[in-house]
Design a protein around this nucleic acid. Structure first.
Lengths: 222, 222
DNA sequence: CCGCATCCGGGGCGATACTG
DNA sequence: CAGTATCGCCCCGGATGCGG
């Protein structure tokens, strides 16, 4: 896209990160870490392949991502965020929080749903509130994306998100994406959500601890 | 722009705020508060008039801004942020911080320069660090926009930015936008900046207080 | 003069097809 | 699997017109 040509740090940021799809590519790389082209395409439903390829090139040129030859097992390339790209986490966190208020009651039929988006929601808002040294693994399995569960490992100083279920999850949430996201964002209490169809397996008090104190906001709906 | 059609709060946020110019319009309204069409156009050099009009309409439809009949003196309309629009402040703050690292040494000849952008830089990063009850007024006058000074009133719980110089500024910065921004962002110490051509009038210790403790980062350049 | 609406060229975007 | 190539379309940018 064309530069705004304004000597303003907001405009500069948007010159680099304001193009369509760029921040969503960062979202995927932030969630899963190093990813292959096809992994990114999976996590970005709706993107045209030429656009993804073009964005990856300009993002590399802009220093947001790096392209690597993949290690031994798979003979392909892998994309990952540079430190500079990872610093966009704060931007994504702000957008995540702001976008929460615009989330409709549930996904429409046309809406894609992927569990890592719910996981990232938790990962970007919860860890800061966790006591140092603690760690919790949350399994996430949404009805709309059956068989594509993910699990998030949350630590006070960071997080990881992986595909598949974890053998050692502290707690696992299964149900409609709306309820999973509602609980993880603090908009919905686990009690209310389970009454509406959310299944919570595992250590329920660990979940309560996660969402403790000020995180559970008023204005819980549905 | 077309919706991403993803049930993800980041994608939702970008559906509404991701269109070109939208966040920069928010920037202007956040800086100056209620503004007329022509004021916005002044603060958004490079925007086409039809685009500004169109954006204002969709932003109003999306609940980001409101359109008012102006009060008595001027017979025209005024645009201002809704509470929902003002909540984008966190997004702008994150973008501002991130964009700082991409700021070149100085504006190119093609770059527009406006003093409110430097003022907003300060307003979005400083007030949080100020002790409650304190207030400081900073005058800002950049060489690149002569005769268009602004002043920012900074409080720990908010800020105001107004056009023109203030009679009662605690401190006033005049010089190249690069040095003004460098000091206000903490990238440059006042001492270093004044050695390079920044003029600091008024209560210099008030400025030092503003930028105290952890704000003055290492890696100061030029 | 202010606040837009209209018109028009160019380019970014989106969908599909195709290739190493 | 990882892209490249092609093609409409629509958005963006720049200029101009026009009513209040």
């Amino acid at each position: 896209m064309k530069s705004y040509q304004q000597y303003c740090s907001v405009a500069r940021a948007l010159d680099v990160a304001g193009d369509r799809w760029v921040l969503l590519i960062v979202r995927e790389l932030l969630a899963f870490g190093p990813s292959r082209y096809s992994d990114l395409k999976r996590g970005l439903p709706g993107i045209a392949t030429n656009l993804l390829a073009e964005r990856l090139k300009t993002m590399e040129a802009d220093g947001l991502i790096e392209r690597f030859e993949a290690p031994a097992p798979v003979a392909t390339h892998v994309y990952q965020l540079t430190p500079r790209g990872r610093e966009l986490e704060d931007v994504l966190r702000a957008l995540t929080r702001w976008g929460l208020s615009s989330m409709p009651a549930g996904p429409t039929d046309a809406d894609a749903v992927q569990p890592q988006w719910s996981a990232l929601l938790a990962a970007l808002t919860i860890p800061a509130d966790m006591p140092a040294g603690t760690e919790i693994t949350v399994g996430i399995d949404t009805d709309e994306a059956p068989g594509e569960a993910v699990h998030a490992v949350l630590r006070h100083d960071g997080f990881e998100i992986h595909r598949g279920a974890a053998a050692d999850s502290d707690v696992t949430l299964s149900g409609p994406a709306q309820l999973v996201g509602g609980v993880l964002s603090g908009l919905l209490t686990p009690t209310r959500a389970s009454r509406h169809g959310l299944t919570i397996r595992g250590n329920r008090s660990a979940l309560a601890g996660l969402l403790s104190t000020t995180r559970t906001r008023a204005g819980a709906t549905t």
